[in-house]
Design a protein around this nucleic acid. Structure first.
Lengths: 102, 102
DNA sequence: AACACATATTCAAGTTTGTCAATATGTTTT
DNA sequence: AAAACATATTGACAAACTTGAATATGTGTT
């Protein structure tokens, strides 16, 4: 299945902000609920909620609701997909040089 | 070598804009000089130059100067590095769930 | 040396993104 | 039903980003 240019930007937007990269590092230790993440980041609750939405939209993170709590974790499936996507978009299909020399 | 959070954002910023994704698709066919890229994109010359700078900063694209012309191509080395970086930042080191239940 | 050309830089818009205060929604407990 | 709590949404503002006109830099040609 081919991804659109737009879909690709949505995936990698997850990694375009330092705070979100930091969240990945926290989630590497296992699933965390929002309040635990806030504790370890200097962010307000609405700001964290905003970042978690972007992360979930990217597919790299998944949220699981359990009662009042939202539990977030890295999605191995999403990671694999992003990996495949990165591989495809950076794959070189020809090394031919088309240049402007007259 | 460990990459900083900031360095990671610089790499993936390359893929956060639709025009830049489109440039990757063009470069997959081989090295291109700036004027050839402009021809196939609806962008002004300064705007393209700006995007190419971001792409080169990410390491995913390399520029090669030849006379008046700049030739751009996808860097397999940079792609490999980004792949490794993506793999590291999304790797799950524990599946333990630390939640807020009292 | 003067000119033509390719690309980079500067500057000034317009747009998008990150942030937080205030508020809303949804869940559990009393 | 009311209170307490966790998270989401809205609205407003500042910072960052994308864009192109004007200009600068660097290179080859006449």
């Amino acid at each position: 299945m081919e991804l659109s240019d737009k879909q690709i930007t949505v995936i990698f937007k997850a990694l375009c902000d330092e705070n979100r990269v930091k969240i990945f590092r926290l989630l590497q230790g296992g699933e965390l609920c929002a309040c635990h993440i806030i504790e370890q980041m200097e962010l307000s609750q609405p700001t964290l909620s905003h970042h978690m939405k972007i992360l979930c939209d990217s597919g790299l993170v998944v949220g699981r609701k359990e009662g009042k709590w939202m539990h977030y974790s890295i999605s191995p499936q999403g990671a694999l997909n992003a990996m495949k996507c990165l591989g495809e978009i950076t794959s070189v299909k020809s090394t031919e040089s088309k240049c402007c020399k007259k």
